[in-house]
Design a binder for these strands. Structure first.
Length: 430
RNA sequence: GGAGAGAUGGUCGAGUUGGUUUAAGGCACCGGUCUUGAAAACCGGCGUAGGCGUAAGCCUACCGUGAGUUCGAAUCUCACUCUCUCCGCCA
């Protein structure tokens, strides 16, 4: 949510900033509603003050035995007028809120305009591995190694699901353990939130009302604002952890991480080249989240992306880090870095982490504030989130980048203590 | 699923025959006096949001949420949400 006062005072500035997202917006209607809203408030509050004053005098008049029937009839009219004005006010505030709720965040100054094509690669780690033999893609590798069962996954969950089996399950779980261990070391608090969330969580995160069709709804209520859904990312839960709270300055920053599966419909996004685990309806992710003071959110974003990079580096995977162009950032975010790992068979890099600064955009939607010591006013916190990391593309990257001529795969060293093996060998012969 | 109890400002808690309670009071917290320092004591401050105003300030709303009755609602009516206790069922 953007600040209505900022739009009121600098409409052109906000308009221009949003153009970076290729988003052309007209504030004339909004500003006229805003003006009307304030005039209604002024008028209705004046009447309310009158009502309060006279209502307080009525007991005394009654005691004196005066005839107040005319006064009461008069006040009845005043009350009716107030009611009408408050209805008008509610309607216009509804329009204002709907308009504001539909606007995306303002991109940071150093974020370039345009879409994906303008993303800038800012760091590259390692090199594309060279193979002197015929390589396999990850679907064949994990099948041959007995790590994943796609057919039975589809049988029991439908298209877009798979089952991690044996060493595959251990490998998946080892990744999660590795991430958890690192975040604990860095002093982040570990949370395991519910996987089913209320509509309000989706709104505060900035995913609703626009993207209600992208999540799996749970059949609890037909009413939209009571709707519950399976979380598409733990971010949706974590942003709401402190919803409607006023935090103390000295408690910030708050640093959390959570493990949850992520459930996404991904309707219509299936592409033939994205076979295997690249895009499923359910994947595992550890999510980092911070609530910070406004003046510290820039450095917090660097901390998050630094932590995520360190995790990928620990696995020894070739990857690159990009700063996203305005249009490629999700609506709530003002600045986003992506980490993509190299998937040899696809000849492409695939996202394993996305770290973003929402500035005060989500905090406004979730009403998450803080108060400085000795300050009168509250301020909105800044919120940041980052995957640390999502596993579904790591496993393909690991098996493809670490494959050997005999079809075996070398286990990254940091994971070995949980798997008990240095090398995974084919178990299924074709 | 059944029965009962409850929801008031950071916390505890008064207020429920509707109108001098404009949400009392205690605790916690902050500032000050006193003290070598601390404690105690005393004094003062101490919710959120919105509107008007250059400002001091004035006004309005909020007692779980939403509607209703009334000149006037924390207080009365209805619906809903959540929490707690007990019973039943269940992986």
């Amino acid at each position: 949510m953007l600040d209505i006062q900022k739009i009121r005072n600098n409409p052109e500035e906000v308009k221009n900033a949003l153009k970076k997202r290729l988003y052309d917006v007209d504030f004339t209607e909004l500003l006229s509603w805003d003006k009307e809203r304030r005039s209604i408030i002024a008028e209705s509050e004046e009447l309310k003050a009158k009502r309060n004053k006279i209502s307080a005098e009525i007991p005394a008049l009654k005691k004196q035995g005066k005839d107040i029937s005319e006064l009461l009839a008069d006040m009845k009219n005043v009350s009716d007028t107030i009611k009408k004005m408050d209805d008008q006010l509610r309607e216009i505030e509804g329009k204002i809120n709907d308009f504001l709720a539909g606007l995306p965040n303002i991109p940071a100054d150093d974020v370039v305009a345009g879409g994906k094509e303008n993303n800038q690669v800012i760091r590259v780690y390692g090199e594309k591995p060279e193979f002197s033999f015929e390589t396999k893609n990850h679907v064949d590798l994990v099948t041959d190694l007995g790590l994943v069962d796609y057919e039975r996954g589809a049988k029991i969950g439908g298209s877009g699901f798979w089952v991690y089996t044996n060493d595959g399950a251990l490998l998946e779980w080892a990744l999660l353990n590795y991430f958890i261990e690192e975040h604990i070391k860095d002093g982040y608090e570990f949370l395991l939130p519910p996987h089913i969330l209320t509509y309000g969580c989706g709104f505060a995160a900035g995913q609703f009302p626009k993207f209600t069709d992208d999540v799996f709804k749970v059949e609890t209520s037909e009413v939209n604002d009571k709707m519950q859904f399976l979380l598409p990312t733990a971010e949706t839960a974590l942003i709401n952890y402190h919803r409607d709270e006023i935090l103390k300055e000295e408690d910030l920053p708050k640093k959390y991480f959570a493990y949850t599966p992520c459930y996404r419909k991904e309707a219509g996004s299936y592409r033939a080249e994205e076979r295997g685990m690249i895009r499923g309806h359910q994947f595992n992710k550890v999510e980092m989240f911070q609530f910070t003071l406004p003046e510290h959110s820039e450095e917090a974003l660097e901390e998050l992306i630094g932590k995520a990079e360190k995790l990928v580096q620990g696995l020894g995977l070739h990857h690159r880090v990009s700063k996203l162009a305005a249009q490629d950032c999700s609506a709530s975010m003002g600045k986003t870095y992506d980490i993509e790992v190299w998937i040899p068979s696809m000849n492409d890099y695939k996202e394993v982490s996305s770290c973003s600064n929402a500035y005060d955009y989500q905090a406004r939607r979730g009403n998450i504030r803080f108060k400085r010591k000795n300050a009168k006013k509250t301020e909105f916190v800044h919120t940041l989130n980052g995957s640390g990391l999502a596993t579904s593309r790591l496993l393909p990257a690991i098996v493809e980048q670490n494959q050997q001529e005999d079809g075996s795969v070398i286990v990254p060293e940091v994971l070995r203590k949980w798997i008990g093996k240095d090398v995974l060998k084919p178990v299924n012969s074709k």
